[in-house]
Design a protein around this nucleic acid. Structure first.
Lengths: 118, 118
DNA sequence: TCCATATTTCAATAATCCTTGAACTGTTGA
DNA sequence: TCAACAGTTCAAGGATTATTGAAATATGGA
């Protein structure tokens, strides 16, 4: 994740509908969701959801794949991780204050720590 | 950090000059930087830097304090940490892929791990 | 008090982004 | 092949955001 990509990603996340989509797709997992289902959940028109999905795909935060008539969108976990990484990249130059809360959240994903899912 | 704040923060970070400012302030530490110095580094006009600094302050990602003639801006590490946390909040619902890289970066801030600064 | 410095505010313009509805493309089943 | 379904694309308009330069505010020193 370089600065150019990060700028696009932050821009993508700075719009209500798009932030909602990303969070929905993160939760929905590798199975993803069809564009229509996303539109319904987000309560926006097909053409509008298409506009935002396209923007999110351009940012690399989500990916698409056709499945029969539907187009399935999934979160790109690697890109999201990269963005978090980018945001924290500088913080270790003497400022653990930023990393601290991140480390805290990350802790719940520790290999052995699966007991506290959700 | 709620969704409303996150939206504003992502919007704040989605502009080149502002992303540059934030990264500069994170590195510059608690001492911060004067508006003029920031403008010079970022190579933009005083009125333009003022516009962006105001936007960043509105987002909560930076704070200001007057010091004699200068106005000193500093990064708000807590807000940045909160944003990282917000971005990762959902990922533990079965998707350690997002947290993994974050945990990796965060690791360098571990209490005992100060040997690997920068 | 007056001037210089440091920065902000304001108004106008330019640029970008979002929404909408109509038309278009691809896919499936009758 | 045709109709229905699932989405996308496009153009127009509205809304928001960014840039610019001129004027205003605040501070400190002569």
């Amino acid at each position: 994740m370089d600065q150019r990509q990060a700028l696009i990603a932050f821009g993508a996340l700075s719009q209500e509908t798009r932030l909602y989509i990303v969070r929905m797709l993160v939760v929905s997992g590798p199975g993803g969701m069809a564009a229509g289902a996303i539109a319904e959940k987000a309560e926006v028109s097909p053409s509008n959801i298409s506009f935002h999905l396209k923007e999110l795909e351009r940012s690399g935060l989500i990916a698409q794949q056709r499945e029969s008539r539907s187009i399935i969108y999934t979160a790109n976990y690697e890109a999201l991780g990269g963005l978090v990484r980018f945001l924290m990249e500088d913080c270790c130059s003497g400022h653990p204050e930023i990393c601290a809360p991140a480390a805290e959240v990350a802790a719940c994903c520790a290999p052995k720590g699966k007991e506290k899912l959700q």
